[in-house]
Design a protein around this nucleic acid. Structure first.
Lengths: 156, 156
DNA sequence: TATTGTTATACTCTATAACTATA
DNA sequence: TATAGTTATAGAGTATAACAATA
């Protein structure tokens, strides 16, 4: 069993576990990505967020609708270019983001509990090398775009 | 960025890359899993394969249909219990399995190319520890069952 | 004419449930 | 009555394309 298959296996498992955790606080993984992106660069347009996450604009609308219904995000019409919205986090949105951080920390602990702190650091360093080599963008999940068929099974 | 998120990110990427490679030889990832399972234990029933892979029986039928059309798998009626089939690999199926092995090796090389052999071995050992700790079954992909929503985005 | 956001529609994938044949 | 395999149907999730408003 090679490293690539183990990565697929563990990656799928991690994604699934994380999805369960954020579902418990009323969010989907893409919404977590959206909230994080707005926090990093407030005032972004929906187009900008969609492009970064590799989400179709039409899908983003529904996610942002829900976030707005939950009172976590605000759509503010830009006065300069009234075609686009500036996305902002509300106070509740910032609180939710902190909550996501706690959930993420629990998740990390769940997954890496068997490792010592130095082992975990070494694993992170190795994974980061692989991710860089593959051209993956730090902090941006590659799985939101049309990759439904993209699940692997062991080769041999 | 924690190890859990990196695993999700890399895992999704690996799954996607592997899916592309097997598609080039006319297979989907679940079919690769099915072929491998039949190779390990020839004569299994479809029910058995479906249970192991976490696939619904109704989904399995279509996959096996296609494998049979490609001449890779044979459905042989069991003479003892004529309700179930014994799944067998044809000669072409065994050849295809060897091909899958080569594709898997290329895939491993693509993903781990930047690592030295000892680094790769250490990574495999660490990942195996994590997988065991999480209760994952060696060689069986956890992503075939109703986990569509199970994709993660970075927490913070 | 091009772009942002939106809605409407179509399509794919997956799950549920009904059906047959054997036991 | 229960089980293996199959088929039919319905549902969820996603992509494509048309639309209104603004530039």
């Amino acid at each position: 069993m090679g490293a690539a298959f183990l990565l697929t296996q563990l990656g799928t498992h991690c994604a699934s576990k994380f999805a369960e955790r954020v579902q418990a606080i009323g969010l989907t993984p893409p919404q977590v990505g959206i909230l994080g992106l707005i926090a990093r660069a407030p005032g972004q347009s929906q187009q900008s967020v969609a492009t970064t996450l590799g989400l179709l604009p039409s899908r983003l609308v529904a996610f942002v609708d829900d976030l707005e219904d939950q009172g976590l995000v605000e759509r503010v019409r830009s006065s300069k270019d009234r075609r686009n919205y500036a996305l902002e986090l509300t106070t509740a949105g910032k609180r939710k983001l902190a909550e996501i951080g706690r959930v993420g920390a629990e998740h990390e602990k769940d997954i890496c509990g068997v490792l010592s702190e130095s082992e975990r650091a070494e694993l992170i360093a190795t994974l980061r090398r692989l991710a860089n080599d593959q051209g993956l963008i730090a902090g941006v999940h590659p799985g939101f775009r049309s990759l439904n068929r993209a699940r692997g099974a062991e080769a041999s």
